[in-house]
Amino acid sequence: MAENHTDKLNAILAQCIEKKPKAQKELFDLLSPKMYAVCLRYAQDTDEAKDILQEGFIKVFNHLERFEHKGSFEGWVKRIFINTSIEFYRKSQRESMVDSIDDVAEQAIDSHTLSELKAADLMKLINGMPKGYKTVFNLFAIEGFHHEEIAQMLNISENTSKSQLHKARLYLQELVLKKHLK
């Protein structure tokens, strides 16, 4: 089954490299829902997410032949989308990474409460974060990059990355608490 899937994907990829429109559309339909979810996590709003999605796919299609079939194709594509998101982030780095939530209560959250939240709720929480926090949190907690890598990607120091992550967590915790107090 899994083999079958890979074979099918490889066939689509080969056709995409030949610029067959039907295969291109197929690949887009296959990947776009997942990739759009990635874009939404990083983008400031849905418009920006849409732009990232479009830009990312243009890159994917234009660089398909560079995919070396090492590791999963989806992982490769996802990395392109993450990079594109970071490009957008850099471009639109409006608020610098400021400390705006120093007064957040340092309260460790009960993870049971958190686990009751659905994906949609978590997305909302993430999207409510200031952009600097959001990007670092996404990269570290969800994508699993190390602080060293994040520092390079965002062109910040490792310590900034760490403190941003810490603040992001506090921020999220505060939001979750508020939600549950209501």
Partner: peptide, 17 residues
């Protein structure tokens, strides 16, 4: 904490506009 976010969102999908 991170794990909950990761598990829920890592493979999330969204309807493409």
């Amino acid at each position: 904490f991170d794990g909950i976010f990761r598990e829920t969102l890592e493979n999330g999908t969204a309807q493409v506009p």
